[in-house]
Design a protein around this nucleic acid. Structure first.
Lengths: 138, 138
DNA sequence: TTGTCTGCAAAATATTTGCAGGGAA
DNA sequence: TTCCCTGCAAATATTTTGCAGACAA
Protein backbone atom coordinates (compact mmCIF):
# COMPACT_ATOMS: atom_id res chain seq x y z
CA UNK A 1 0.00 0.00 0.00
CA UNK A 2 2.89 2.34 0.76
CA UNK A 3 4.55 1.29 -2.46
CA UNK A 4 1.38 2.11 -4.33
CA UNK A 5 1.26 5.54 -2.72
CA UNK A 6 4.76 6.34 -3.93
CA UNK A 7 4.05 5.03 -7.39
CA UNK A 8 0.80 6.91 -7.66
CA UNK A 9 2.30 10.25 -6.74
CA UNK A 10 4.71 11.24 -9.43
CA UNK A 11 5.60 14.33 -7.47
CA UNK A 12 8.64 12.98 -5.61
CA UNK A 13 6.90 13.09 -2.24
CA UNK A 14 8.52 13.29 1.16
CA UNK A 15 7.99 10.63 3.82
CA UNK A 16 5.50 12.92 5.52
CA UNK A 17 3.49 13.36 2.33
CA UNK A 18 3.42 9.62 1.78
CA UNK A 19 2.31 9.15 5.35
CA UNK A 20 -0.57 11.57 4.88
CA UNK A 21 -1.59 9.96 1.61
CA UNK A 22 -1.59 6.44 3.02
CA UNK A 23 -3.32 7.54 6.17
CA UNK A 24 -6.16 9.04 4.18
CA UNK A 25 -6.98 5.52 3.11
CA UNK A 26 -5.84 3.61 6.17
CA UNK A 27 -6.27 5.99 9.10
CA UNK A 28 -4.64 3.75 11.68
CA UNK A 29 -1.23 3.68 10.01
CA UNK A 30 1.67 5.19 11.93
CA UNK A 31 4.67 7.19 10.83
CA UNK A 32 6.98 4.48 12.11
CA UNK A 33 5.48 1.97 9.73
CA UNK A 34 5.78 4.34 6.81
CA UNK A 35 9.43 5.06 7.52
CA UNK A 36 10.21 1.40 8.11
CA UNK A 37 8.62 0.37 4.85
CA UNK A 38 10.13 3.19 2.84
CA UNK A 39 13.51 2.03 4.05
CA UNK A 40 12.70 -1.53 3.07
CA UNK A 41 11.40 -0.51 -0.33
CA UNK A 42 14.44 1.58 -1.12
CA UNK A 43 16.74 -1.24 -0.05
CA UNK A 44 14.83 -3.58 -2.32
CA UNK A 45 15.18 -1.11 -5.14
CA UNK A 46 11.44 -0.64 -5.51
CA UNK A 47 11.66 3.06 -4.84
CA UNK A 48 14.51 5.50 -5.10
CA UNK A 49 15.65 7.88 -2.42
CA UNK A 50 16.52 11.50 -3.19
CA UNK A 51 18.90 13.30 -0.87
CA UNK A 52 17.54 16.77 -0.37
CA UNK A 53 18.12 19.53 2.13
CA UNK A 54 15.51 19.31 4.85
CA UNK A 55 13.98 15.94 4.14
CA UNK A 56 14.33 12.90 1.94
CA UNK A 57 12.11 12.52 -1.08
CA UNK A 58 11.12 9.33 -2.85
CA UNK A 59 10.82 8.47 -6.50
CA UNK A 60 8.79 5.68 -8.03
CA UNK A 61 10.99 5.41 -11.13
CA UNK A 62 13.50 2.58 -10.94
CA UNK A 63 15.74 3.48 -13.86
CA UNK A 64 18.72 5.77 -13.43
CA UNK A 65 17.79 9.35 -14.15
CA UNK A 66 18.46 12.87 -12.99
CA UNK A 67 16.40 15.47 -11.19
CA UNK A 68 15.68 19.15 -11.31
CA UNK A 69 14.71 21.13 -8.25
CA UNK A 70 13.30 24.61 -7.89
CA UNK A 71 15.26 26.40 -5.19
CA UNK A 72 12.27 28.61 -4.40
CA UNK A 73 9.26 26.31 -4.10
CA UNK A 74 11.34 23.16 -3.66
CA UNK A 75 9.39 21.24 -6.27
CA UNK A 76 11.31 18.38 -7.91
CA UNK A 77 10.87 16.94 -11.37
CA UNK A 78 12.82 14.68 -13.67
CA UNK A 79 15.57 16.27 -15.74
CA UNK A 80 15.58 15.82 -19.52
CA UNK A 81 19.14 14.52 -19.63
CA UNK A 82 20.19 10.95 -20.24
CA UNK A 83 22.14 9.08 -17.56
CA UNK A 84 25.84 9.06 -18.40
CA UNK A 85 27.13 5.59 -17.71
CA UNK A 86 30.49 6.54 -19.13
CA UNK A 87 31.16 8.72 -16.08
CA UNK A 88 30.80 5.78 -13.72
CA UNK A 89 33.30 3.89 -15.79
CA UNK A 90 35.73 6.80 -15.78
CA UNK A 91 35.52 7.32 -12.03
CA UNK A 92 35.91 3.62 -11.38
CA UNK A 93 39.15 3.55 -13.31
CA UNK A 94 40.53 6.73 -11.84
CA UNK A 95 39.74 6.18 -8.19
CA UNK A 96 39.63 2.48 -7.50
CA UNK A 97 36.21 2.86 -5.93
CA UNK A 98 33.68 0.19 -6.76
CA UNK A 99 31.24 2.68 -8.25
CA UNK A 100 27.56 1.90 -7.91
CA UNK A 101 26.32 4.94 -9.80
CA UNK A 102 25.86 8.65 -9.45
CA UNK A 103 23.14 11.17 -8.73
CA UNK A 104 22.70 14.48 -10.47
CA UNK A 105 20.48 17.28 -9.26
CA UNK A 106 19.97 20.43 -11.28
CA UNK A 107 19.00 23.50 -9.34
CA UNK A 108 17.29 26.63 -10.51
CA UNK A 109 14.10 28.62 -10.43
CA UNK A 110 11.04 27.21 -12.13
CA UNK A 111 9.11 29.38 -14.56
CA UNK A 112 6.25 29.94 -12.14
CA UNK A 113 8.46 31.11 -9.30
CA UNK A 114 10.46 33.25 -11.69
CA UNK A 115 7.29 35.12 -12.58
CA UNK A 116 5.60 35.34 -9.23
CA UNK A 117 8.72 36.45 -7.44
CA UNK A 118 6.95 34.91 -4.49
CA UNK A 119 6.43 31.49 -3.10
CA UNK A 120 3.45 30.07 -4.96
CA UNK A 121 0.41 28.66 -3.23
CA UNK A 122 0.06 24.90 -3.38
CA UNK A 123 -0.87 23.88 -6.87
CA UNK A 124 0.77 23.87 -10.26
CA UNK A 125 2.88 21.55 -12.25
CA UNK A 126 6.31 20.99 -13.70
CA UNK A 127 6.90 21.99 -17.29
CA UNK A 128 5.60 18.61 -18.30
CA UNK A 129 4.14 16.84 -15.28
CA UNK A 130 1.91 17.45 -12.30
CA UNK A 131 3.97 18.02 -9.19
CA UNK A 132 3.32 19.57 -5.84
CA UNK A 133 5.40 22.41 -4.50
CA UNK A 134 6.47 22.80 -0.95
CA UNK A 135 6.66 26.49 -0.36
CA UNK A 136 8.90 26.07 2.62
CA UNK A 137 12.49 27.16 2.22
CA UNK A 138 13.24 30.82 2.66
CA UNK B 1 37.40 31.27 12.62
CA UNK B 2 34.65 28.94 11.46
CA UNK B 3 35.57 29.66 7.86
CA UNK B 4 39.15 28.75 8.65
CA UNK B 5 38.03 25.49 10.19
CA UNK B 6 36.17 24.51 7.05
CA UNK B 7 39.05 25.53 4.82
CA UNK B 8 41.57 23.71 6.93
CA UNK B 9 39.71 20.44 6.89
CA UNK B 10 39.65 19.16 3.37
CA UNK B 11 37.54 16.22 4.50
CA UNK B 12 34.10 17.67 3.78
CA UNK B 13 33.19 17.89 7.46
CA UNK B 14 29.72 17.94 8.93
CA UNK B 15 28.47 20.84 11.05
CA UNK B 16 29.12 18.78 14.16
CA UNK B 17 32.71 18.10 13.14
CA UNK B 18 33.27 21.78 12.47
CA UNK B 19 31.77 22.60 15.83
CA UNK B 20 34.13 20.21 17.57
CA UNK B 21 37.11 21.55 15.67
CA UNK B 22 36.33 25.18 16.44
CA UNK B 23 35.51 24.38 20.04
CA UNK B 24 38.89 22.80 20.54
CA UNK B 25 40.34 26.23 19.99
CA UNK B 26 37.54 28.37 21.39
CA UNK B 27 35.85 26.26 24.03
CA UNK B 28 33.01 28.68 24.71
CA UNK B 29 31.56 28.51 21.21
CA UNK B 30 28.07 27.13 20.84
CA UNK B 31 26.46 24.98 18.18
CA UNK B 32 23.99 27.73 17.41
CA UNK B 33 26.79 30.06 16.41
CA UNK B 34 28.40 27.44 14.23
CA UNK B 35 25.17 26.69 12.39
CA UNK B 36 24.37 30.38 12.01
CA UNK B 37 27.75 31.15 10.55
CA UNK B 38 27.82 28.12 8.28
CA UNK B 39 24.53 29.31 6.84
CA UNK B 40 25.94 32.78 6.37
CA UNK B 41 29.12 31.50 4.77
CA UNK B 42 27.27 29.28 2.35
CA UNK B 43 24.96 32.13 1.37
CA UNK B 44 28.00 34.29 0.76
CA UNK B 45 29.49 31.56 -1.36
CA UNK B 46 32.52 31.15 0.87
CA UNK B 47 31.75 27.51 1.52
CA UNK B 48 29.68 25.02 -0.35
CA UNK B 49 26.95 22.85 1.11
CA UNK B 50 26.66 19.15 0.27
CA UNK B 51 23.28 17.49 0.57
CA UNK B 52 23.84 14.11 2.15
CA UNK B 53 21.66 11.58 3.87
CA UNK B 54 21.83 12.14 7.61
CA UNK B 55 23.56 15.47 7.80
CA UNK B 56 24.87 18.29 5.66
CA UNK B 57 28.55 18.45 4.84
CA UNK B 58 30.60 21.47 3.91
CA UNK B 59 33.26 22.00 1.30
CA UNK B 60 35.89 24.70 1.27
CA UNK B 61 36.30 24.65 -2.54
CA UNK B 62 34.40 27.42 -4.25
CA UNK B 63 34.57 26.21 -7.85
CA UNK B 64 31.97 23.87 -9.30
CA UNK B 65 33.01 20.27 -8.92
CA UNK B 66 31.62 16.84 -8.20
CA UNK B 67 31.89 14.46 -5.26
CA UNK B 68 32.39 10.82 -4.56
CA UNK B 69 31.03 9.14 -1.48
CA UNK B 70 31.74 5.75 0.03
CA UNK B 71 28.42 4.14 0.89
CA UNK B 72 30.05 2.11 3.65
CA UNK B 73 32.17 4.53 5.66
CA UNK B 74 30.44 7.64 4.35
CA UNK B 75 33.69 9.38 3.51
CA UNK B 76 33.45 12.02 0.79
CA UNK B 77 36.10 13.16 -1.64
CA UNK B 78 36.25 15.15 -4.84
CA UNK B 79 35.52 13.30 -8.06
CA UNK B 80 38.03 13.43 -10.93
CA UNK B 81 35.47 14.61 -13.47
CA UNK B 82 35.19 18.09 -14.92
CA UNK B 83 32.03 20.12 -14.37
CA UNK B 84 29.81 19.95 -17.44
CA UNK B 85 28.49 23.42 -18.08
CA UNK B 86 26.87 22.23 -21.28
CA UNK B 87 24.29 20.31 -19.26
CA UNK B 88 23.09 23.45 -17.52
CA UNK B 89 22.63 25.07 -20.88
CA UNK B 90 20.71 22.09 -22.22
CA UNK B 91 18.37 21.89 -19.24
CA UNK B 92 17.78 25.63 -19.33
CA UNK B 93 16.64 25.42 -22.91
CA UNK B 94 14.51 22.34 -22.47
CA UNK B 95 12.72 23.21 -19.26
CA UNK B 96 12.45 26.96 -19.00
CA UNK B 97 13.97 26.84 -15.53
CA UNK B 98 16.50 29.51 -14.71
CA UNK B 99 19.23 26.98 -13.98
CA UNK B 100 21.80 27.91 -11.38
CA UNK B 101 23.89 24.78 -11.69
CA UNK B 102 23.88 21.12 -10.82
CA UNK B 103 25.37 18.76 -8.27
CA UNK B 104 26.73 15.33 -8.99
CA UNK B 105 27.49 12.71 -6.37
CA UNK B 106 29.12 9.42 -7.27
CA UNK B 107 28.46 6.56 -4.92
CA UNK B 108 30.39 3.40 -4.39
CA UNK B 109 32.67 1.51 -2.05
CA UNK B 110 36.14 2.88 -1.41
CA UNK B 111 39.13 0.57 -1.77
CA UNK B 112 39.66 0.35 1.97
CA UNK B 113 36.09 -0.68 2.73
CA UNK B 114 36.10 -3.08 -0.18
CA UNK B 115 39.02 -4.89 1.41
CA UNK B 116 38.07 -4.78 5.02
CA UNK B 117 34.51 -5.85 4.40
CA UNK B 118 33.95 -4.00 7.64
CA UNK B 119 33.50 -0.46 8.70
CA UNK B 120 37.01 0.89 9.16
CA UNK B 121 38.17 2.59 12.32
CA UNK B 122 38.62 6.32 12.17
CA UNK B 123 41.65 7.08 10.08
CA UNK B 124 42.62 6.76 6.48
CA UNK B 125 42.45 8.83 3.39
CA UNK B 126 40.90 9.15 -0.02
CA UNK B 127 42.83 7.83 -2.97
CA UNK B 128 44.59 11.15 -3.14
CA UNK B 129 43.76 13.18 -0.04
CA UNK B 130 43.45 12.87 3.71
CA UNK B 131 39.82 12.50 4.67
CA UNK B 132 38.04 11.27 7.75
CA UNK B 133 35.46 8.53 7.57
CA UNK B 134 32.27 8.42 9.55
CA UNK B 135 31.65 4.79 10.12
CA UNK B 136 27.99 5.36 10.81
CA UNK B 137 25.62 4.14 8.18
CA UNK B 138 24.74 0.48 8.19
C1' DT C 1 23.47 54.28 23.24
C1' DT C 2 22.65 51.34 19.24
C1' DG C 3 23.20 47.54 16.64
C1' DT C 4 25.36 43.11 15.88
C1' DC C 5 26.82 38.82 17.43
C1' DT C 6 27.10 35.30 20.97
C1' DG C 7 26.02 31.45 24.49
C1' DC C 8 22.51 28.98 26.25
C1' DA C 9 18.52 26.46 26.27
C1' DA C 10 14.28 25.30 24.33
C1' DA C 11 11.88 24.38 20.17
C1' DA C 12 11.14 22.49 15.69
C1' DT C 13 11.91 18.97 12.31
C1' DA C 14 13.02 14.48 10.63
C1' DT C 15 13.78 9.83 11.51
C1' DT C 16 14.62 5.67 14.33
C1' DT C 17 13.67 2.40 17.89
C1' DG C 18 11.71 -0.35 22.03
C1' DC C 19 7.85 -2.70 23.28
C1' DA C 20 3.56 -5.03 23.69
C1' DG C 21 -0.26 -6.70 21.03
C1' DG C 22 -2.55 -8.76 16.72
C1' DG C 23 -2.85 -11.67 12.93
C1' DA C 24 -1.06 -15.24 9.74
C1' DA C 25 1.31 -19.63 9.20
C1' DT D 1 2.41 -21.36 19.35
C1' DT D 2 5.73 -18.78 16.69
C1' DC D 3 7.12 -15.20 13.90
C1' DC D 4 6.61 -11.01 11.70
C1' DC D 5 4.56 -6.69 11.34
C1' DT D 6 2.16 -2.95 13.33
C1' DG D 7 0.68 1.23 16.37
C1' DC D 8 2.19 3.97 19.78
C1' DA D 9 5.23 6.60 22.19
C1' DA D 10 9.65 7.74 23.52
C1' DA D 11 14.16 8.48 21.98
C1' DT D 12 17.73 10.35 18.58
C1' DA D 13 19.71 13.41 15.55
C1' DT D 14 20.02 17.61 13.24
C1' DT D 15 19.13 22.32 12.80
C1' DT D 16 16.71 26.59 14.07
C1' DT D 17 15.25 30.13 17.14
C1' DG D 18 14.07 33.30 21.29
C1' DC D 19 16.24 35.81 24.58
C1' DA D 20 19.33 38.29 27.48
C1' DG D 21 23.95 39.78 27.84
C1' DA D 22 28.68 41.25 25.75
C1' DC D 23 31.15 43.91 22.80
C1' DA D 24 32.22 47.33 19.26
C1' DA D 25 30.99 51.54 16.79
Amino acid sequence: MILEAVRKSHAHPSAEQIYLEVRSRSPRISRGTVYRNLNLLSEMGEVRRLDMPGAERFDWRREDHYHLRCTVCNRVCDAPVAYQHALDQAVTEETGFRIQGHRMMFEGVCPRCAKKKQIPAADGECPAAGEEPDGERE
